[in-house]
Simulated scan of single mutants.
Amino acid sequence: MAEQTKAGKKNDRAERNRIYAHALPAIPSSSTKPWLGIPLWRTPSSLERPRVVGVFDSATRSVWIIHSEHANLLWRRGFFGKGSLSRSEPTWLARQTGSRTAEEITAKRREERKTFKTERARAIVAAQEEAEAAFAAGKPLPAPFAPEAVRQAIRSTPEPGDASTPPPVLAAEPPEIEPVEDLEYLQLTLQEAFFLAWSLDSLRVLDAVTHNPLSLPALWRASHAAHYMPPAPQLDLRFDNPFLVNYVAYHHYRSLGWVVKSGIKFCADLLLYKRGPVFAHAEFAVIVCPVYEDDTDRATSPFQLSNVDPFSWSWLSTVGRVNSQVQKTLILTYVTIPSSRRVNLAALDSPGCLAEFSVREVVLRRWVPARMRD
């Protein structure tokens, strides 16, 4: 059983490496102006880049990738976006048609681990009972109690007469499958969409009403305007716009080569993966903490930014405990918002204003006496 499990994991790993072998590379370009102390990262012109089309939706503050081919391309080339009918990878159609998905592979692995643990516990209990009987009779310990014998017992599969073994099922003719319409789309955050459109030049965004392509300046302003309630493109741009503050953090980590996903499941803003969610769990959880350089800007702001006020000990302890239990390191990322009295607001007309922001990081680890006494 253990050998079969190892072989299955090896095959799954090889298949994942094949599917996600061409993720978007992060290669620095020396001809671009540094942002946040790091260069703007672009894909070299000699490498193939995906060319996809999306639709801007201000109501959900996202960009929708309607075409399934484009959605799969973005997911496999950098794990961008989230399936509208899936937890992460857009697999709704595959689940409807019976194809094997990453979620099903994960469920199968969990079932295999559960079966393995049950068989291991059963083998250990049997070996202990035999050892106790031998000890009571004054005999030496039996061979099955030796480590290698126990490992052999653990690897053994249930006997044919075991009640847990399901009876054989006669093969039946497969039913005729009707074609299923793909109702799922890939949903990109505005930060992901602008990074793809501007930094990687891989996304063209259409207006939801006119279906005309949005220029980069138009997409820049529309992303800012979407955070006003109701959206109003004529309002003045501000340095503390939620889109801009979160884009600074997103661009910072994406430019350093991390795969960045939402961290709401773990009480955080972002999760950082080395390669992607299909390879391993995220190692870091990020909480974005805006810091106003000028308190006057905060007093006049129409936005209620999260994590501006100091954290309470109970809240910080709760978040730290949640992430330590899932083996994630918590990072507080402080994004300093430049003062509008120091920087001309005209700088907000282009992404060049990002050079005025600064990012500082504080790593938190929860001290657990039982684990860290050594």
Rank of each mutant, 00 (worst) to 15 (best):
E3C: 11
T5I: 15
G8Q: 15
K9V: 03
K10P: 06
E15T: 11
E15V: 09
A21T: 09
I27D: 12
P28Q: 08
K33P: 04
L36R: 01
I38Y: 06
P39A: 00
L40N: 09
S45M: 05
L47A: 06
L47R: 11
R49V: 12
P50W: 06
R51Y: 11
V52A: 12
V53C: 10
A59W: 13
R61M: 12
A71D: 07
R77S: 15
F79K: 05
K82R: 13
L85H: 14
S86C: 05
S88L: 14
P90G: 02
R100M: 11
I105T: 13
I105A: 06
A107L: 08
R109V: 01
R110I: 13
R110D: 00
R113H: 11
K114L: 13
E119T: 10
A126N: 09
A136K: 13
P140D: 05
P142T: 03
E148P: 04
A153R: 04
I154P: 02
R155K: 12
E159T: 15
G161T: 04
A163C: 08
V169D: 08
P175D: 10
E176N: 10
E181G: 06
L186I: 01
Q187N: 10
Q191S: 15
S199Q: 09
L200C: 10
S202W: 01
S202P: 04
S202A: 15
R204Q: 15
R204C: 10
L206S: 04
A208N: 14
T210N: 15
N212L: 15
S215G: 13
A218G: 12
L219A: 08
W220R: 04
A222L: 09
S223L: 12
S223K: 10
Y228R: 12
Y228W: 11
A232P: 05
P233K: 01
D236G: 02
F239Y: 14
V245D: 03
V245A: 03
R254G: 00
G257D: 01
K265R: 14
K265P: 03
F266S: 06
A268Q: 01
K274M: 08
K274S: 11
K274F: 02
A280F: 10
H281R: 13
H281L: 11
A282S: 05
F284P: 01
V286A: 02
V288S: 07
D294G: 04
T296N: 07
T296H: 02
D297K: 03
D297P: 08
T300K: 13
N307V: 00
N307D: 14
N307W: 09
V308K: 06
P310E: 03
F311H: 05
W313C: 11
S314N: 14
V326N: 03
T329H: 08
I331A: 11
L332T: 01
P338Y: 00
S339P: 05
R342S: 12
L345E: 01
S358A: 02
E361P: 00
E361N: 05
V363D: 05
R366C: 01
P369T: 03
R373M: 07
